[in-house]
C-alpha cells in the first residue's frame, strides 16, 4: 500500500445560501490512522463529512478519495465508491423497520451475493465486535442511545470498508458509553487497518485516540498536528476552544446593540 494519503481535500469552498461555510480548506488524511477534525459547534464539521461522502457538492475545490475525484464521478461510480466507506451518524440512523440483526446484515445483503449462512456468520461477528450479539432480535426503538450507536458502528464496518467517517460519536453519551466507544474506535482501527475520520468537539476523548488533529474554525483550518505537538496557544481561537473558555474570539454574546442602549431605549414601547 502506498504512502499517499487516502483522502485529500483541496481548496474547498462551500456556502449555504449567502453564508460561507468553508473558504479554502486543505486536508490530508493518512492511511490506517485516526484523524480527528475538531472545532466549535456550527463550523460545519458534519457538512465537511457530507462533502467527503459526496452528498453535497462544493462550490470550488476537490475531494480525492484514493485518487478518485468524488464530485466528478457518475452516480453509479459514486455509489460503488461508497461501498468502501462507512459512516457513523450522530443519531445512529438505524433503519427503524428492521431489527438489529437485519440492520447490520443490510449492506451485506444489498452489495454481496453471499449465501444466507455466511451473511449470518459475518453479521454475528460484527455484532460480537461491538458486544451486542445478544441484542440481535431487538428493534432500534428498544435500544439506548449508546447501543444504537454501537449497532450503527457494526453496520458501518459490515462490508470491511477502507474508510470510516464518524460524525460526533461521543455526543450525548454517558461516561461509560463514551469509554466504550473510544475503545471500539481505537480497536477497530488497529484490528481492521481502517482509516478513520472522527469529527467531534469532545476534546478529551478525541485527543486520546487521534493520531493527527485538524482544528477548524471560521471556514478554515486553524491548526493541525499530532495531539502532543498541536500548538494550541498559537491562535487565540484554537486556544479558547481547546481550553474551553466561555468568552474570547468566539464571543459569548450573539451580535447585539450595546446592552446599555438596548435597555434604556424604550421608544419601541410607546
Amino acid at each position: 500500500m502506498s504512502d499517499s494519503p487516502l483522502v485529500e481535500v483541496k481548496g474547498l469552498h462551500f456556502s449555504r445560501g449567502e453564508k460561507s461555510i468553508f473558504a479554502g480548506v486543505e486536508l490530508q488524511i493518512p492511511r490506517g490512522k485516526i484523524t480527528a477534525i475538531m472545532g466549535p459547534s456550527g463550523t460545519g464539521k458534519t457538512t465537511l463529512l457530507k462533502l467527503i461522502g459526496g452528498q453535497l457538492t462544493p462550490d470550488v475545490g476537490r475531494v480525492l478519495i484514493d485518487g478518485y475525484d468524488v464530485h466528478a464521478l457518475s452516480r453509479k461510480a459514486l455509489f460503488t465508491l461508497r461501498r468502501r466507506m462507512g459512516m457513523l451518524f450522530q443519531s445512529g440512523a438505524l433503519f427503524s423497520d428492521l431489527s438489529v440483526f437485519e440492520n447490520v446484515a443490510f449492506p451485506l445483503r444489498v452489495h454481496t451475493e453471499l449465501p444466507e449462512a455466511m451473511v449470518r456468520d459475518l453479521t454475528l461477528m460484527k455484532l460480537q465486535a461491538v458486544g451486542l450479539r445478544g441484542a440481535r432480535e431487538l428493534m432500534p426503538a428498544e435500544l439506548s442511545g449508546g447501543m444504537a450507536r454501537r449497532v450503527a458502528l457494526a453496520r458501518a464496518i459490515a462490508l470491511d470498508p477502507d474508510l470510516i467517517l464518524y460524525d460526533e460519536p461521543f455526543v450525548g453519551q454517558d461516561p461509560i458509553s463514551k469509554g466504550v466507544l473510544v475503545q471500539l474506535i481505537k480497536k477497530l482501527n488497529q484490528a481492521l487497518g481502517l482509516t478513520s475520520i472522527v469529527v467531534s468537539h469532545d476534546i478529551q476523548e478525541t485527543l486520546s485516540i487521534a493520531d493527527y488533529v485538524y482544528v477548524i474554525a471560521d471556514g478554515q483550518v486553524m491548526a493541525h498536528g499530532t495531539p502532543d505537538g498541536l500548538d494550541v496557544d498559537d491562535d487565540p481561537r484554537v486556544s479558547q476552544f481547546v481550553h474551553g473558555e466561555p468568552d474570547g474570539p468566539v464571543p459569548f454574546h450573539y451580535p447585539a446593540p450595546e446592552y446599555f442602549d438596548d435597555i434604556l431605549n424604550q421608544e419601541g414601547l410607546q
Binding site: 459512516m87 440512523a93 433503519f95 443490510f106 452489495h111
Partner: peptide, 8 residues
C-alpha cells in the same frame, strides 16, 4: 442519508 452512504 445513511442509506445513501451505504451505497443504496
Amino acid at each position: 442519508t445513511s442509506m445513501e452512504m451505504i451505497g443504496v
